[in-house]
Write a protein that binds this DNA or RNA. Structure first.
Length: 844
RNA sequence: GCCGGAGUGGCGGAAUUGGUAGACGCAAGGGACUUAAAAUCCCUCGGGGCUUAGCUCCGUGCCGGUUCGAGUCCGGCCUCCGGCACCA
């Protein structure tokens, strides 16, 4: 009998599938389409276990849908621009392009070795001019529509990466990539006006509900951060000017005891003579520890009650949100409360909860209550007063109701080399001029000096900078910033819609029969939750813009989203030598110094913590099928997966047993290939188990994406198969049917072994051209069920009874049961609850 | 602080609509085969108690509620994980 040699069969079938072009995709109007997409990788060098898991999940769905008769688009590509390539160039002197393309070559081989069913003819690589040309094209379209604009603004600057970061890329005031603390810097930047779509992006969230995980939708809503309030002017007492404030709590207007301006507010400089002190305060702007302020010596008039209140500059007031100025109500806002306490400002209660308030307050009361000391609004519920006062303000013309968003425009300028050049030139005569469409792409020059000194590489490349003005033909200078790489990934799912990877966006515009309309939206998107805001929000924004351009018809690019959990592993640590690899541990001791090794938390696999598992090693040791099977079996897709060396052995053992069983019986199985299925008393339970397994596994894959339980069911079916003893030819036909079903059900998870054994029992390849098996509800039904008999909700007896019995018979059986009798002894039966096919509960 | 999510055997995890808690796998223990080991196969496997072929009590983070019946629903806590965080 042949031994199970994963490498041999996996390579064999991978080349078979490729030669046959089994996963190449074309438009087919007669079949329902299914677009299955996994987030494309950054070509960092090698794939990691997170990729294996992500792509294994996607591959199950793609292969399953294909067998279900869908026309499936399942593409793959490379998110190939980005900093690591440039850093590698600086450190090792390799050109970013060479580094990137070599990594792509290696990683592509790895993905192919995993046997994923991609249509490689549609592969996209974002750093190729054929791709980034369209980044530039989209930029120009947005520029035309006023959605791309340049402004000087305070930006997040990462000194280590020597570039600007988007708000979304700053995590706890640190760089998302290198963890360096970000600084603030004033720079001319290009922005995309995502805020123009704030309301639409928010409303679109409702549509996503059901298809996306609720917590991701919540994060998006949160990020957009809509809030309703009013804007109104507080005139200065001397009449020289006025301060426009924004508040969501107009019901507390009578409780305002001072006004605060942001230190960055233009008026701040005018109101403060002592510029040194203002500078000092600006230095603490954004400091969340302490609230500091500066009294301007000026007063403002509260338009609601005519009261004169002091004007402060306060470091906690953000210029970027609302109007950069607030009215302060210390009694009902904790921040104002803290500020008021520090500077001894009055605290006036105007909202009282039912239980009353104890004054002096030790914290602001921010809850609901009844309005007091507020003119005609006194006595109202504050929630009603918010509306009433809003209307009043508008009627009186002293302010207006407005909606504010937390979302900021997307700053896309990066002072780095390895990205898409922004297609703009600056001419002394004509100003800012877009590069004409027919001159695209603006190519990245190859000969650049990558020193890592902080100056943008393109800004030091004369041949690139110097150009002619497209309008007047005079000398002009190119924009030297490149685009944020999130631009690349904001539309790559549309690039895949073009056959043969030949992207021509312009030709697809307003094209009635565009393939984009056929494939979009993505039916199932799969990726890490770390992109819950960044990439997913940008993509939703882009798709809306592209819809207006006439390129797509949908607003939402991703109908369903599955966010897979992280792949984790235990960490090992030596008090002397830090993180340790498993092979650096000897009998619980550090192999370098002999200290007792600390078994740390189970954490996300990372090179720095030395708790990674290399997919190459897994493939070599166990093969692709085992690696896939384990990562799907160990946990449901959305949950974190804890790595287990023993667990992967278990998955391998399962495939090995399956191999041995089928191979040892292949002759008998093949002999009954053309015989009709014939069940008997002996084979009935296996036959039933098979139908039950088809039903259960199909439901788990189709409705719940619960691959772990689907696989568990396949293991159960396998256990039934291996304990079955066929007596005659009829039994062999049932065994053949069960094994065929098992192989079909297993094929999305472990495609190579399924294909090999499919052929071994005399079937024609490919198994992936077979329809998904159907179950027969009748055949799946149990003839006998185990009836549970409870007395007062406690299990007292179990009986095997025919499944067909009606409620009365079940009741009778329960009441006459010997064991049950003991518990009924002399007691009055008050009620009997019968749940058919499950249980009878007798209440006494 | 606010918004999400989760807490079930020694471990990863099942239990789909409120109906037998612990499927499947891993680990562990016992046995078979073997000169031996590995591999493989078979059996046991939540905890306690008893008069131990069996019987019985307890058990899904904690407290309470609804229900004939709660891992599942409701209210209140605790712990852990993730996101946001001076957004007025």
């Amino acid at each position: 009998m042949r031994r199970y040699d994963p490498e041999e069969i996996e390579l064999k079938w991978q080349s078979y599938w490729q030669e046959k072009g089994l996963f190449l995709t074309g438009r087919d109007p007669h079949r329902r389409k299914f677009y299955c997409l996994e987030m494309f990788p950054y070509p960092s060098g090698k794939i990691h276990m997170g990729h294996v898991r992500n792509y294994a999940i996607g591959d199950v769905i793609a292969r399953y849908k294909r067998m279900r008769g869908y026309n499936v688009l399942h593409p793959m590509g490379w998110d190939a621009f980005g900093l690591p390539a440039e850093n590698a160039a600086i450190q090792h002197g390799v050109h970013p392009a060479k580094w990137t393309y070599e990594n792509i070559d290696y990683m592509k081989k790895q993905l192919q070795r995993m046997g994923f069913s991609y249509d490689w003819s549609r592969e996209v690589t974002t750093c190729s001019p054929e791709y980034y040309k369209w980044n530039q094209w989209f930029f120009l379209k947005m520029y035309e529509k006023g959605l791309a604009y340049r402004k000087s603004s305070a930006v997040n600057w990462c000194p280590s990466c020597a570039t600007v970061l988007a708000n979304e890329q700053v995590i706890d005031s640190r760089c998302w990539r290198c963890d360096t603390e970000v600084q603030e810097k004033e720079l001319e930047q290009w922005f995309l006006k995502i805020t123009a779509y704030a309301e639409e992006l928010l409303r679109g969230c409702d549509e996503l509900s059901g298809g996306w995980p609720e917590h991701v939708i919540a994060m998006q809503r949160n990020w957009i951060g809509r809030s309703e309030g009013v804007e109104m002017d507080f005139p200065l007492a001397d009449g020289s000017s006025s301060i426009r404030i924004f508040t969501t709590r107009p019901d507390t207007l009578w409780g305002a005891t001072f006004v605060c301006l942001s230190p960055m507010h233009p008026l701040a400089e005018k109101l403060i003579e002592d510029t040194a002190r203002l500078e000092q305060l600006r230095a603490s702007y954004g400091n969340t520890e302490d609230k500091e302020g500066l009294f301007t010596g000026r007063y403002a008039i509260n338009p609601m009650n005519g009261e004169r209140i002091p004007v402060f500059i306060a470091n906690f007031v953000l210029m970027e949100y609302g109007t950069g100025a607030i009215m302060s109500v210390p009694a009902h806002d904790q921040r104002d409360f803290e500020f008021a306490r520090r500077y001894n400002l009055p605290i006036r209660v105007v909202i009282v909860p039912e239980a009353g308030l104890k004054e002096p307050l030790d914290a602001a009361y921010e809850g609901e209550g009844i309005v007091k000391d507020s003119g005609e609004f006194s006595g109202m519920k504050n929630t009603d007063a918010i509306k009433a006062i809003g209307q009043y303000i508008e009627k009186k013309g002293i302010g207006k109701r407005v909606v504010n968003y937390r979302l900021r425009d997307w700053g896309i300028s990066r002072q780095r080399y390895w990205g898409t050049p922004i297609p703009i030139v600056y001419c002394d005569r004509c100003g800012t001029v877009p590069v004409p469409e027919d001159e695209l792409p603006v190519l990245l020059p190859e000969n650049v000096t990558l020193s890592g000194t902080g100056l943008s590489p393109l800004a030091q490349t004369e041949e690139f900078i110097n150009t002619r003005c497209p309008e007047c033909g005079g000398r002009a200078r190119r924009e030297t910033d490149t685009m944020d790489t999130f631009v690349d990934s904001s539309w790559y799912f549309i690039a895949y819609c073009f056959p043969d990877g030949e992207i021509d966006i312009a030709a697809a515009l307003n094209k009635e029969d565009s393939e984009i309309h056929y494939w979009m939206p993505v039916d199932q998107y799969i990726g890490g939750v770390e992109h819950a805001v960044l990439h997913l929000l940008y993509s939703r924004f882009f798709t809306r813009v592209l819809k207006e351009l006439g390129l797509v018809r949908t607003e939402e690019p991703f109908r369903r989203l599955l966010t897979q959990g992280m792949v984790c592993k235990e960490t090992l640590r030596c008090p002397e030598h830090g993180w340790l690899l498993p092979e650096e541990v000897d009998n619980g001791r550090c192999s370098k110094c002999g200290s007792t090794v600390i078994h740390g938390r189970v954490e996300k696999m990372s090179k720095s913590k030395k708790n990674v598992v290399d997919p190459d090693y897994l493939i070599k040791t166990y093969g692709a099928d085992t690696s896939r099977l384990f990562s799907l079996f160990a946990a449901p897709p959305e949950k974190d997966l804890e790595w287990s060396d023993r667990g992967i052995e278990g998955a391998h053992r399962f495939l090995h047993r399956l191999w041995n069983l089928v191979q040892s019986k292949r002759q008998q199985l093949e002999a009954v290939k053309d015989s009709p299925l014939q069940t008997s008393e002996n084979s009935m339970s296996l036959y039933r188990k098979t139908h039950q397994s088809i039903k259960k596994a199909t439901g788990d894959i189709e409705q719940r994406y619960q691959f772990n339980t689907a696989i568990a069911q396949l293991m159960e079916l396998f256990n039934s198969i291996s304990s079955f003893r066929p007596d005659n030819d009829g039994d062999w036909t049932v065994l053949r049917f069960s094994i065929k079903s098992l192989l079909l059900l297993l094929s999305p998870f472990a495609p190579h072994i399924a294909e090999e054994l499919w052929q071994a029992i005399g079937e024609e390849p490919s198994i992936f051209e077979q329809p998904w098996p159907e179950w027969d509800e009748e055949a799946a039904r149990e003839e006998e069920i185990e009836l549970v008999i409870q007395v007062n909700g406690k299990v007292r007896s179990k009986r095997s009874v025919p499944a067909s019995l009606d409620e009365d018979s079940l009741k009778e059986i329960a009441l006459s049961d010997e064991k049950v009798q003991r518990f009924l002894d002399g007691r009055q039966v008050r009620k009997v609850i019968v749940v058919r096919n499950r249980l009878v509960n007798i209440v006494v």
